[in-house]
Amino acid sequence: MTSSRVDVAALPQSFGAATDLAGALTENLGRVIRGKAEPIRLAVTALLSGHHLLLEDVPGVGKTLLAKALARSLGGSFGRIQGTPDLLPAELTGVSVFRKASEDWEFRPGPLFANVVLVDEINRATPRTQSALLEAMAERQVTVDGTSWDLPDPFFVVATQNPVEHVGTFPLVEGQRDRFGLVVEIGHPSKAAERDLLLGAGGAEALQGLRPVCEPLALAAAVATIRTVYCAPAIADYIVDLVAGTRHHGEVVLGASPRASLSLLHAAKAGATMAGRQFVVPDDVRALAVPALAHRLMLRGGSDLATASGIVSRIVDTLPVPRG
């Protein structure tokens, strides 16, 4: 486990390396999850944009599998947290333990201290625990007993949530979901993919055979490089208009925040890099608008990802594309 912040500026910035990394990751994940090119693409985009990923879907479609595959592909450490109602924040962050031998307190880091952290069923943890997690995600550091400890770099959280269950759950409210860069629904596999799974291709066995495609440091470098991708002012205007559109829509009580604009921009930059481009074009923004914005909207009569996605897609379809 690496616990220190990496000085990104010192790393070699290579755009081509970032693109290659993205390609390798995508291919690797594709070996494990069959027939789900789009969720894989979005997961890699979220990773490369430097924001966290929330997988929201019914049980059994491979959310955990995807997160594990991601962790293995990156070659870093993997932490796993299972959301249960009795989960305490200390179990995430770690505790200080008194060591009789040295008459001193020793800090034992919790599962958060990993490169890729899977938080399974985050909606079953109590709001208090959720807050602790989200704060850690935002600040990339944890304060225990007065001492702050940095979380590793890269630090990527994949959280999963089952939107259908309501009993005994504490669903993330919109303000909390705002902390995730993208929300992806995996969906049931196609018939061919499910058959392949039954016949032994892909799945957990393939997971065992995955080799890492890069080092964590390389990922950090790629993320930093991607942040430098050029974005024209017209594209920035377009993103702002999109987000403003979500705010002014009749059905929406609370629209997307400026944090959302930023995260959409980073995701678009990642998308551009994955397409081999060193600048952002409107199509990058359009492709990522729904995953990046839909979960941040608070609608009248309850927030439903499907409805919100519909609203965002409608806005994307009607807003004129910048012409440069």
Binding site: V281, P282, V316, T318, P320, V321, R323, G324
Partner: peptide, 29 residues
């Protein structure tokens, strides 16, 4: 700018042949 003008020429060429550009359709598409 040139991209704006050239896109317009493309739009005109498309529209004359029955396929105008929708406002939310990017140039690449």
């Amino acid at each position: 700018t040139w991209p704006d003008l050239f896109l317009e020429r493309l739009e005109v060429a498309g529209a004359e042949r029955g396929r105008p550009r929708r406002a939310s359709e990017s140039a690449i598409r």
